[in-house]
Design a protein around this nucleic acid. Structure first.
Length: 800
DNA sequence: CTAGGGTTAG
């Protein structure tokens, strides 16, 4: 007969006894209360407690101890505590029961404070006391209290007790004190299954997966693992994708009869799915006698992660026949639609979720924020975000990432303020989202603050974090800091090297970019297709035509990486930027791809600064034919026509853009002075020092003319007369920013300016002159790269 | 045991 059946019989006998008018005595109740506790029968428990009070046994020690235990098992610690507090006499068992009650339900503080209270009495803690309070010390990660209890254990020799040594071991794993764990484990002679489970699980949770497997192998030769051991090891195999050992464990389970356990089978399905063996995962699923929702979800998710969306969807349809899908099922479906960038599907699932009421679930809401963003709808993503009543760190990280993705940096920065106001602490993912915002805005001060946070939280050793920091510093004008971060990184991946190479690229340090690439090869990191874009780009911005071409040619030969259209675009940029327009055009014709707007655009950008009118017109026509969705290319073409004085064509393009509702990004420049950011638009007449800045610009123009500067009117892209053109050039946002910066900082201070578009040829000349006249270093970041103007020359060597 | 959020270029 099972325990439960026996417990039920106890009730039957009790009621028979009452019917026969036989009075229970104080020996009747403890076992009856234990039965209520064992069956978790709250109603019966309350009834029995009522009888205890009625019959006057409430001051009995044994009855009260049993009641404390019962209420603790019901997770009704208030009632347990009430019984405890009202006892006229307590023994060590009373204390142990209440402490263990708190401890096993996660009330660590209460357990610990009662333990401290106990020590004021003359009662002596025993093995049960200690093994109840140790989990509390671990749960609170209290090294001090843990040390005190450990001292007590050593003094009284209680470590010989397996229960106690297990609890100690478990606590040191929570402290992540692996050294002490090893020592304790090695010294423990009386090991049981629990001891092994603690170390196997502990090492796995500390990330030492190999160690965990080794211990399991050691254990199998001496001890019979239980289901918990097996599932721990399987989890390790799943984590590291260790299919072979997973298969071994699977066979072992079948021999021992563990394979019919539902949870164990679910873990097996996940293990095989993670290792991309969907055939076996399916076999296990098909053979299961009792499938639960987790089994279905695991298989559906497995198929999706392995790229078999059809199977996923079919299974989902089958699932709906036998069971009601839960929010996990729907979240998986959302992930799938997100990956497929299928906005209408996301909306369909959203309405299904609404119907079954899962739309208020936090995880679901978070998945929706992300799904809408990744399917291209900022609007829906923001609506979903604002509609959520509860938000956690994931919600905030998703919406901040969305802002970054859609270049809504201002909203992103506001979000972080609001998030802190709502009491949510940023985590690693938040930092990784925020750094790109700093990069885009060139917000070095904020970037440095985040860097300080990262150091404080110890995230700086993580590779993606270092990578983001390299990019942040380089985009914020500090190549030096990028290199320092790079050099401090212990582990470097392709992305790390790509970030460094790109950093060198935008500062025109092509040679350094090349030697970084060569050094990367020596360290054994394998290049990917993206790093070649960066390398060629770096060559292009330093005029290293031969080197760039060589890297392009070697991609396939040396690294077996097939050049993509973006590599061809890089080469077109490389050739045309150095003035080899004809060669660039030939190169395009010989491509194995149909040239798209990125290819023609690269060539046309270079045409702007050349005098080859014929090529410019030819290329412009090509781009017009492609009728791109991207406004940038139309603007580029329009600008080229404007430079050539073909105003009718300019008007046609502007009209067609207007008709399609497309708008040009207005030019703007900004700079930071004493922790404040000043933003200026083109022709800005509303900034706070308009009069002064305007006068100062006139003064500068006079000085410049004396030095030999002549305004190059072909860079005015509007059909107006020459005087107006001259005036319009003065209105370019970078000039306003420069003049403003010069006026508001001490002589000799270097200035740092950011422009959202590419700097125009005339402003480039203008800034060169300025740097000489006022003897200042001007670091300008435009849409393409950095220009360091110093003493009349620019670091880009006019390869802008 | 299943489910939601971070990286490189143009």
């Amino acid at each position: 007969m099972t325990h439960n059946a026996l417990f039920s019989h106890a009730f039957t006998f009790y009621f028979q006894m009452l019917n026969m008018k036989i009075h229970p005595d104080r020996y009747t109740f403890p076992s009856l209360i234990n039965a209520c506790a064992g069956l978790l029968d709250v109603g019966m428990g309350n009834l029995v407690h009522h009888h205890v009070l009625q019959m006057g046994f409430y001051s009995d020690l044994y009855v009260s101890n049993a009641l404390i235990d019962m209420y603790a098992r019901f997770n009704e610690l208030g009632k347990a505590r009430n019984v405890f507090d009202n006892m006229p006499h307590r023994d060590i068992v009373s204390w142990n029961t209440i402490i263990s009650g708190y401890s096993s339900n996660g009330y660590w503080e209460e357990a610990l404070s009662l333990f401290k209270e106990l020590r004021k009495f003359s009662l002596v803690p025993d093995f049960a006391t200690v093994s109840s309070v140790l989990p509390a010390c671990g749960g609170l990660v209290s090294f001090v209290d843990g040390g005190v209890v450990h001292g007590l254990v050593e003094k009284t020799g209680m470590r010989a007790h397996t229960l106690v040594s297990n609890a100690l071991l478990s606590m040191y794993f929570k402290f992540l004190d692996l050294e002490n764990c090893r020592k304790l484990f090695d010294e423990t002679v009386a090991r049981d299954t629990v001891t092994w489970n603690i170390v196997i699980c502990g090492y796995s949770q500390s990330g030492l997966y190999e160690e965990s497997i080794k211990l399991f192998q050691d254990m199998v030769s001496k001890f019979e693992p239980d289901l918990l051991t097996i599932t721990s090891v399987l989890r390790v195999c799943t984590h590291i994708g260790e299919l072979n050992y997973g298969k071994f464990v699977h066979k072992y389970m079948m021999r021992k009869g563990y394979a019919c356990d539902t949870t164990a089978s679910n873990i097996l399905i996940n293990m095989y799915a993670k290792c991309s063996d969907m055939v076996t995962a399916r076999e296990i699923f098909d053979r299961m006698k009792c499938r639960d929702l987790v089994s279905w979800n695991s298989l559906i998710n497995g198929y999706f992660r392995n790229g078999c969306c059809m199977e996923s969807v079919n299974l989902f349809k089958m699932l709906k026949v036998v069971l009601e899908p839960d929010f996990v099922t729907y979240v998986t479906l959302l992930s799938m639609s997100t990956q497929l960038v299928n906005l209408s599907q996301v909306k369909q699932i959203h309405s299904d979720l609404f119907k079954v009421g899962y739309d208020s679930c936090l995880v679901v809401g978070n998945a929706l924020v992300d799904a809408y963003a990744k399917c291209g709808s900022t609007e829906d993503s923001l609506t979903q975000f604002y509609s959520m009543k509860r938000r956690d760190i994931v919600t905030w990280n998703s919406i901040i990432a969305t802002c970054v993705h859609f270049d809504e940096c201002d909203i992103g920065f506001k979000m972080i303020t609001q998030m802190r106001r709502e009491g949510v602490m940023p985590d690693e993912a938040t930092m990784l989202s925020l750094l790109p915002i700093c990069s885009v805005l060139s917000a070095k001060r904020q970037g440095k603050e985040i860097h300080a946070c990262i150091l404080r939280l110890g995230y700086h050793l993580h590779v993606p974090m270092g990578n983001a920091l390299i990019e942040m510093y380089s985009k914020c004008g500090s190549l030096k800091n990028s290199v320092i971060v790079f050099e401090h990184m212990k582990t470097k991946d392709v992305v790390t090297w790509t970030s460094l190479i790109s950093a060198y690229g935008i500062y025109g340090e092509g040679r350094k970019a090349i030697s970084a690439f060569e050094e990367m090869k020596r360290t054994g990191v394998t290049p990917d297709h993206i790093i070649f874009v960066s390398v060629i780009h770096a060559c292009s911005h330093s005029g290293l035509v031969e080197e760039g071409r060589a890297y392009f040619n070697n991609m396939k030969k040396e690294y077996d990486i097939e050049p993509q259209i973006e590599h061809y675009a890089s080469v077109v940029d490389l050739l045309s930027r150095s003035g080899l327009l004809a060669e660039a055009e030939e190169f395009i014709v010989s491509m194995p791809f149909t040239p798209d707007e990125s290819i023609w655009g690269a060539l046309l950008s270079a045409c702007r600064s050349s005098t080859d009118v014929k090529i410019a017109e030819r290329v412009a026509e090509r781009i017009v034919e492609l009728n791109s969705e991207n406004t940038g290319y139309h603007i580029l073409v329009s600008n080229v026509y404007a430079t050539l004085g073909k105003w009718d064509k300019v008007r046609t393009i502007r009209k067609s853009l207007k008709n399609r509702g497309l708008k040009k990004d207005p030019g703007c420049s900004w700079l930071q002075i004493h922790n404040r950011v000043y933003v200026f638009g083109a022709g800005d007449r509303h900034h706070e020092q308009y009069e002064e800045v305007n006068k100062f610009l006139e003064l500068l123009n006079d000085l410049l003319r004396k030095e030999g500067y002549v305004a190059d009117l072909k860079f005015v892209l509007h059909d107006v007369d020459d005087d107006e053109k001259r005036e319009m050039l003065c209105g370019h946002s970078e000039r306003i920013a420069i003049a403003f910066g010069l006026l508001n900082t001490k002589p000799g201070t270097p200035l740092q300016i950011v422009k959202n578009l590419r700097v125009c040829g005339d402003c480039h000349t203008f800034t060169k002159y300025i740097s000489k006249i006022v003897q200042r270093e001007l670091l300008v970041r435009d849409a393409n790269r950095f220009h360091l103007f110093k003493d009349g020359v620019c670091s880009c060597r006019d390869l802008w």
